[in-house]
Amino acid sequence: MIFPTFAPPTTRTPSFVLDASVVATWGIPRRYVVYTHRVRSQLASGVALTTATWPFDVAEQLLAAVQRGETTRPRVDALLTGLSGFRLYIDDEGPFRVWPTTLDLAHAHDISVRDAAYLELALRIDLPLATVDATLTRAAVAARVTIFTP
């Protein structure tokens, strides 16, 4: 398994919630910017927490980028293989909070349920959110969630 379900008690605690939009840029050259590079560098020596949908979200964004010609399948495969080197933990409580908590956040901020899952996790765990998604950033600011600064 690439990602443990949750951080074992002997490891360092996560320092931020990682949105799929950041990781997807690592495989799409024209979207890879200073911020996403810095998040990657921070994750290389730290620990992050993410939602249960995160693997699907990353894969979906990368598949769409391949289909649009923004990246290649070999580049995506290399990125996905390399993810096993990061300490990234999947939240195992999020699926049990979809209704009403996550759904309420989606309604309140006019965002998708998937985006609301990242927002709910950051709120619940009280961690900053690493994202380059403009809609999620807007919702996070409105919900008083700090945007992660690497």
Rank of each mutant, 00 (worst) to 15 (best):
G82L: 07
R73I: 13
E60F: 12
V76Y: 02
F56E: 08
T50Q: 04
A59E: 05
E70R: 13
A59L: 14
Q61I: 09
H37T: 13
E60Q: 15
D77M: 12
R73H: 12
L49H: 05
G69E: 07
V39T: 01
V66W: 04
G69C: 07
E60H: 15
W54N: 01
R75V: 08
Q42G: 02
A78V: 11
S41Y: 06
T51K: 01
L83N: 04
A64N: 14
L62E: 00
S41H: 11
E70F: 08
F56N: 14
L83Y: 04
G46D: 03
G69K: 10
L62H: 06
S41V: 11
L43W: 00
A78Q: 11
T51V: 07
L43S: 00
R68V: 08
E70D: 13
Q42E: 04
T50N: 09
G46M: 03
A52Q: 13
H37G: 09
Q61V: 11
T71R: 01
T53W: 05
S45P: 06
P55N: 07
L43F: 04
L43Y: 02
S84A: 15
S84T: 15
P55M: 11
L43Q: 04
V47P: 00
D57V: 04
H37Q: 15
T72M: 08
E70P: 02
R38I: 05
S45L: 15
A48S: 10
R38A: 05
R75D: 09
A44M: 09
Q42N: 09
T81M: 13
A78C: 14
W54C: 02
F56Q: 14
A59S: 12
A64Y: 10
L62S: 03
A59K: 05
L63V: 14
F56Y: 14
L43N: 00
V39M: 04
L83V: 08
